[in-house]
């Protein structure tokens, strides 16, 4: 059922790194998040994502798993080994429902492991907001 799509005001200046290789998905998510007031940095694979994460130090990383060149888990592992990346907030966004990977993600400090196709956009946005509010 359609629930209220009330949006709360974004905390100013919140940045999100979006690492997703599927263009259509990346675009729509980027559009939506930008609409919400977030600053979104897109990346198309793990390598790009790492570089951007290091450069921009985003408040939140939305990380896909299946990607060319470097997949999401590798990027996560590498990130966690850096000073700047070890405590960075990460949300895995994937269509691969793999308990092992979820466990592995959990080991790397990622407790949100979402199946994209099961989540509506507004639900996702709400979660992201919640996650960012926590820190603040």
């Amino acid at each position: 059922m359609e629930s209220s799509k009330k949006t709360t005001s974004p905390v100013a200046g919140q940045t999100i790194l979006l690492v997703e290789d599927e263009i259509s998905v990346r675009n729509v998510l980027q559009t939506r998040l930008t609409k919400e007031g977030f600053t979104v940095f897109p990346a198309g694979n793990g390598r790009e994502g790492l570089a951007l994460a290091e450069a921009k130090k985003p408040d939140l990383v939305l990380l896909d798993i299946v990607m060319p060149e470097m997949d999401g888990m590798t990027m996560l592992r590498q990130m966690r080994q850096t000073d700047w990346g070890k405590n960075m907030k990460v949300v895995m966004l994937t269509n691969l429902a793999d308990a092992d990977r979820a466990a592995e993600a959990g080991r790397e400090g990622v407790y949100d492991f979402l199946i994209k196709s099961n989540w509506q956009l507004w639900q996702l946005v709400a979660l992201i907001k919640k996650k960012l509010q926590n820190k603040a």
């Binding site: 998905v25 729509v28 939506r32």
Partner: peptide, 14 residues
Amino acid sequence: LRTPLTALNWYGEM
């Protein structure tokens, strides 16, 4: 299968 569907769903939502 899910990947294009995700796009489909979210664009639809948008």
